[in-house]
Design a protein around this nucleic acid. Structure first.
Lengths: 144, 144
DNA sequence: TATTTTTTCGAGTAATATTATAGATTATAT
DNA sequence: ATATAATCTATAATATTACTCGAAAAAATA
């Protein structure tokens, strides 16, 4: 399951992606419009900022804005920051690999073998889909 | 992440798949060979039995055996029993659908739209892969 | 029929992860 | 100076996962 943390992160990035030419937006503003607990959002935005996706400014008139083109922010990167691995088993993870507790012989593990395929299929979609795509999909869905 | 419950379920089914022509195997035997906590495995096997995948027999000489051809037991069915939904968001689930807490307008949700695609890609693999396939993959991996 | 074996059942607990909150601190603008 | 708004550290609340306990029911066999 996708954590709320990740959903909130995506939603915040979408909001900021729609706010590109405007002055930075405050946490409290984002929290209100998307109905995200403010203090929780605070942590999430900080993570995204530390990962280089957001620009932040303190003090009056401060807030957050995207540090990159929304076309260049892909779901896979966000999810790795907020949820960690994409793979469903740690032994099939590219960026967060570690042995499964239960596993005796990884090299011949049929489960791992299948979930490497699942990971690749998931990864393909998530690394092709950007914040800009999400915004585009939403407007497309409205018009349908 | 795949729960241990699901991994244990798959492992148990694989063991039983290799035991097809033998008399039923006891919980304790499966638990030992696969190093699964016995009481936990007990619950898991019961779920699989109630879902019709296993045959069980009480008393001396009793135990568990597969109720179907290992070629006809697919990962997707096992996972739905042990972990529930395949989709990463409840609103994209076929068998366990429910609204996301956070969601205001499902019909135009770009997140949902992407994760329906992810679900489909995952589903394809999991509904094509059987216990027999896992066993086959393992022997193939050994010979490589 | 008594005993042993093994699954079944209902409940409970422990460990861990997720979600959320609190309060003080630091930076910036006016 | 003062107000604004992000940052930091810690902790509380809740949910989920992993696992345990003890007794009951069913079947075999001696």
């Amino acid at each position: 399951m996708l954590s709320k943390k990740t959903k909130y992160a995506i939603k915040a990035l979408v909001v900021l992606g729609k706010n590109m030419d405007q002055p930075p937006m405050q946490i409290s503003k984002i929290a209100e419009t998307e109905r995200i607990p403010k203090k929780f959002l605070e942590q999430i935005l900080l993570d995204l900022r530390n990962a280089g996706f957001l620009y932040s400014k303190k003090g009056a008139g401060g807030g957050y804005s995207l540090n990159r083109d929304p076309k260049e922010i892909f779901l896979v990167s966000i999810m790795r920051i907020t949820d960690g691995p994409i793979a469903m088993v740690p032994c099939a993870s590219l960026n967060f690999y570690h042995k499964c507790d239960e596993c005796h012989q990884e090299s011949t593990c049929g489960i791992r073998d299948v979930f490497v395929d699942v990971r690749d299929a998931t990864l393909k979609i998530l690394s092709e889909t950007s914040i800009a795509d999400i915004i585009k999909r939403e407007t497309t869905l409205i018009s349908v």
